[in-house]
Nucleic acid binder design. Structure first.
Lengths: 198, 198
DNA sequence: TTACAATACGGAACATCGTTCCGTATTGTA
DNA sequence: TACAATACGGAACGATGTTCCGTATTGTAA
């Protein structure tokens, strides 16, 4: 790896301005399309909306998952940064955890199909899965540790499991108005509460 | 609909014996392939394993989802029938519910990708989703009602939500040995317990 | 300003899906 | 044994993610 080699990839600023412009156009188009058609929208639709060819798309984003990450990176970071803030501002660590989970659920639920996409099962979205976890698990851990230290919750569930559980419960919130993921997540948190011991 | 029209579909016995034989061969091949490659295995792979053409496949099963239903129908029915039995044999309704959930989770977890497939989001598996729910929600309702009548659980969660929650939590149990869906499901049931009120 | 090399672009083409279609083969029966 | 109903096989279609490569654009050095 040569240190002088030009940077490349979805988040790097390219030298040529048409490239920079196209990258931003693609991100904007993707964000718009994701809102209406969900994160599973075809690459062609996004490229078309951006007025750009497929080659250009793949030049900027090696694959679909990288585009999704790029589109939501900022929001994920915001969610991550909210953790310490909530911990400082909330009456108890558990309350902070509840609020943070609410934030995370808000984020997932408003992105059609995002939660499902993160289950790397079918598609090649494992990068997405990994990014979310890398970024958010430490924050969640901090919240859980604080709540555990305050003796508010059990200690036998780690942040990874909690995050996965929440993510999974958010799957399929579109297409079924009956389904209320929040209620189940609230129940999960309820189950996490330490039963007042003798 | 003419009453004398010959029955057709995945569960009907055809008149010609080659048809009957091929249907069974397809079911066997599918069951075998599902074990190794998961329920998302390509139709071509199943047809090939059965030594049969694609046309034959689609003659017997209008689409992939119908095949999956056919393969697992018996096991789903078994699970449904276990509900009343457990209710009669268990010390308390809640214990019966726990055992039944365990049965259901066993079923889902051993079928790679089944839980994910039931989220009709991407693929055309809504028939699968519907079948599972139609068959199991009534059973689950019975268990919940019994537990509620015994004042063991809260009454603000219906069977549909519980089933969906459990199904969702089972998603992605393969491909990640760290993830333990059962623990989260146990926590969910814990949260469902009625907090001993004054 | 102008040539030109580096860079980026566009979209045809490929592989993999589920699914449909239709000419051919098999089967049950008169 | 002929023949009509039925079933079979697999080519072909449409959708998708991704790769490839000839062409166009851009920044820069002469």
């Amino acid at each position: 790896m040569n240190a002088s080699s030009p940077r490349q990839g979805s988040s790097a600023a390219s030298k040529r301005k048409d490239a920079r412009r196209n990258q931003q156009t693609l991100l904007d188009a993707a964000a718009a399309v994701f809102v209406t058609s969900g994160v599973d929208a075809p690459v062609r639709e996004i490229a078309s909306k951006a007025g750009v060819g497929l080659g250009t798309f793949y030049r900027h984003f090696p694959n679909r998952a990288d585009l999704v990450i790029a589109v939501y990176r900022h929001q994920v970071d915001t969610c991550a940064e909210a953790g310490p803030t909530l911990l400082a501002e909330s009456p108890t660590p558990f309350a902070a955890l509840e609020r943070w989970v609410d934030l995370f659920v808000d984020f997932l639920v408003t992105k059609h199909g995002l939660a499902a996409a993160m289950q790397a099962d079918t598609t090649g979205f494992e990068a997405l899965h990994t990014y979310f976890l890398d970024r958010l698990v430490p924050v969640c851990t901090q919240l859980l540790d604080a709540a555990a230290a305050a003796d508010e919750i059990r200690t036998d569930l780690d942040a990874y499991h909690l995050m996965r559980g929440i993510g999974n419960l958010c799957i399929g919130t579109d297409g079924d108005p009956r389904y209320d993921a929040r209620r189940l997540i609230a129940l999960l948190l309820e189950g996490l509460r330490r039963p007042h011991r003798p």
